[in-house]
Amino acid sequence: MTNVSPGRLLVVDDNKVNRLLLGRSLEQQGHTVEMAENGRQALEMMHARPFDLVLLDIEMPEMDGYQVLEKVTTDLQLRDIPIIITSALEELNSVVKCIEMGAEDYLVKPVNPVLLKARIGASLEKKRLRDQQRELIRKFATSEVATDLETSGFSLGGKFVEATAMFSDIRSFTTIAESQTPAETIELLNTYYTLMFEAISDQGGVVNQMVGDGLMAIFGAPLVQADHCERAVKAALDMIGMIQLLNVDRLAQGKTEIRIGIGIASGQVIAGYTGTTRRATYTCVGDTVNLAARLESHTKVVGKPILIDGATQSTLSSAIKVDSEGPFQLKGKTVEVQVFSVPLDQKK
């Protein structure tokens, strides 16, 4: 039998002899063991500190095994802790019910030490793999998307949500790239993305696309935010502020300044995971998203770095000042769109 790394285990049983029996066997196998006399106590302990596995008796006073399972499986903080039911042989019907409720496995009392070791080992190993997967999701998805995946499960289906879309792009990037080494270009892009990510995440936005020197971010999805318009505009101002700081550095090094354009539009978008079950990304599509992309491109025409649409402007608080740029006929739009620019100096 393979050796598994020791875990922190919780033994829940109202019977002291059973607790001592199980606890001793587990300690002999190298695990750290804590004990609870009933379900209520067990839940308190599980909330107070992390456990890798719980061995749970069904029949207990105050709060029985079913009630514990129900609480644990609906608790985001606890639901990933594997639970092994310990039961007497005649309780097989109850065991089935527990497995259906989400218990990972069961052991018949009195517990056979070899079987105990095998079951605990398998459960701990599975938990370790699940923890690793979660860690990977956290690394490759934004925390909002990871949280959304963990709470709602993985579903490729989309839904309509009210959100704000943002596009940002480096002006004349090709010219800049031609004037420096490839390594410098990649370094510039990495610095740029680091700064933009920070500004966007600080306002609760999610960057969901990076293509070359452009990026798309979404505010208000997957996590609902009532003030997604305001957050997007604040993020845009922070982004420009960060680029200005970066330029101070670049000028000191004798490099060309960079400038970015940002387009923001709000309204209904279709949000969801697109791709295949093997590789998917959280994204938003729809007219609102297209409009944001057009506004970003329109910043070159207007000569102002941040442009927003009327829907975004109408929900902004008085703390943010905007200038009307009048109606514009944007490419691909049949009706004219009210466009506003956001001046960088908001103190005016």
Partner: peptide, 13 residues
């Protein structure tokens, strides 16, 4: 039933 159950399980051990 609960009391009898507890006595049974530990005594058998």
């Amino acid at each position: 039933r609960q009391a009898a159950h507890s006595i049974k399980s530990t005594s058998n051990s």
